[in-house]
């Protein structure tokens, strides 16, 4: 098992009113991600606990790409990973951002 942490500054804060959202399930080839609007301004932190060690560089790349694309400023995102492939990771991150961008609490 490995714990990773990534800190980014997004271009802008993510719109929306939702305080937190959960997507996915911790299972083989899958992950869960908890999104929380708890950081100031444009900061974005992604913390990963993964069952599969040794993929830090891949995580770094997927997350940097995600921040670039969605500008999730203000979010802390915590991931529990059961060995998801990079495309699944990207899909879950996109799903979470879309939920958080919702105007309804």
């Amino acid at each position: 098992m490995e714990t990773l942490s990534f800190r980014h500054t997004a271009a802008h804060a993510l719109a929306g009113a939702r305080a937190h959202a959960l997507v996915g399930v911790v299972g083989s080839g899958n992950l869960e991600a908890l999104f929380e609007r708890v950081l100031d301004g444009n900061a974005c932190v992604v913390e990963v606990v993964t069952a599969v060690a040794g993929y830090g560089a891949v995580w770094s790349e997927v997350i940097a790409d995600f921040v670039q694309r969605y500008s999730p400023g203000g979010l802390r995102i915590c991931i529990h990973d059961g060995g998801a492939r990079p495309d699944t990771v990207a899909l879950r991150l996109a799903q979470g951002v879309s939920l958080m961008a919702d105007d309804h609490e």
Binding site: M1, V49, A51, H80, G82
Partner: peptide, 11 residues
């Protein structure tokens, strides 16, 4: 779960 090398779930 941590001591078995398994990631937990939030719920």
């Amino acid at each position: 779960l941590r001591q078995f090398g398994l990631p937990p779930a939030f719920d």
